[in-house]
């Protein structure tokens, strides 16, 4: 007589054999229409000076401090999309489709497109990465490989951009390791996109973020043409910025939440739970003073 325990083990073994082997001949398809799950902690407009949770180098903090949002009105800035390091966490509506080789029927690339952002192919066909002296783009150059049902993506050749839309810079030396995980939950398809950013210039530790998307077959990603206009009449070559030490607006975040202004300079510390104790001590000291 077979025990319940024994039958469970055999069932699990059977399931493992079926689904484990399935991954070896049936690759996960990430194609689809993927609106972002907005109930997740999102990245709506951040405060000026809101740098918490980012492992920023002191040079990045200086760049953020002297940043003036008015720079976005320059002709060279007006039609820029969010780059590959930002938009995946941005986020906006995502569309993914497959390019298939007509002869081998193998996947050449997953094409990814975000609303008001960039199109970036994730190449799957084993092509080599371009040399460093090739041009960099907003989306960067991405190569993908399956790790079971998960897709691992490595992205290089990014242009300079930002990690947060309040002047926090991302250098063009940044690279990304990304993981795409597709799963079903309560009869709906979800895509988790994990982004790990490495930036030798502006990050002191890897920055790890993720975004949840949920399949919606009725999604539209409309065109987003952009026309550069003269938004502000200025002298030729004028670039809006603050001189160091003159930008009081960066304190708006700390002041709004009654936090110590020194938190701007704490970089990677602000990512960890223990940081709240430091904030608490600073707040208490502030109240004593």
């Amino acid at each position: 007589m077979t025990s319940l325990h024994g039958r469970s083990i055999r069932l699990l073994a059977l399931l493992a054999a079926v689904f484990g082997s399935a991954a070896s001949f049936a690759q996960m398809d990430f194609s689809g229409e993927w609106p972002v799950v907005r109930s997740q902690d999102n990245t709506d407009n951040p405060h000026l000076g809101e740098y918490v949770g980012l492992p920023l180098s002191q040079e990045a903090i200086r760049r953020a401090e002297i940043w003036d949002a008015s720079i976005q009105s320059l002709p060279e800035w007006q039609c820029r999309p969010h780059s590959g390091a930002y938009i995946k966490r941005g986020p906006s509506n995502l569309r993914i489709w497959k390019e298939v080789d007509p002869a081998s029927r193998q996947i050449v690339a997953f094409q990814t497109e975000w609303l008001r952002s960039t199109n970036t192919p994730i190449y799957m066909d084993g092509r080599p990465r371009p040399p460093e002296h090739a041009a960099h783009t907003w989306g960067g150059f991405s190569l993908g490989e399956y790790q079971g049902d998960r897709l691992k993506v490595r992205t290089t050749h990014l242009k300079e951009d930002y990690y947060r839309r309040n002047g926090v810079p991302q250098s063009d030396r940044a690279t990304l390791s990304e993981y795409l995980i597709r799963r079903r939950f309560r009869n709906e398809d979800y895509l988790t996109w994990v982004i790990v950013a490495y930036d030798p210039v502006y990050l002191t530790e890897p920055l790890i973020r993720s975004t949840e998307y949920r399949q919606d077959l009725h999604q539209r990603v409309p065109p987003y043409p952009c026309t550069v206009v003269t938004e502000v009449v200025r002298p030729d070559g004028y670039v809006p910025h603050y001189l160091p030490g003159t930008n009081d607006q960066i304190y708006s975040f700390a002041d709004a939440y009654d936090l110590p202004r020194t938190l701007y300079f704490d970089g990677a510390e602000t990512m960890y739970p223990e940081y709240r104790f430091k904030l608490q001590r600073a707040r208490e000291a502030q109240q004593r003073d």
């Binding site: 060279e76 800035w77 063009d172 910025h241």
Partner: peptide
């Protein structure tokens, strides 16, 4: 010197030197 560029890269370089 360095990698190939486009006008966005020149824009960043101009911004940096102006600042």
């Amino acid at each position: 010197h360095g990698r190939l560029a486009d006008s966005a890269d020149v824009g960043y370089y101009r911004d940096m030197l102006t600042i």
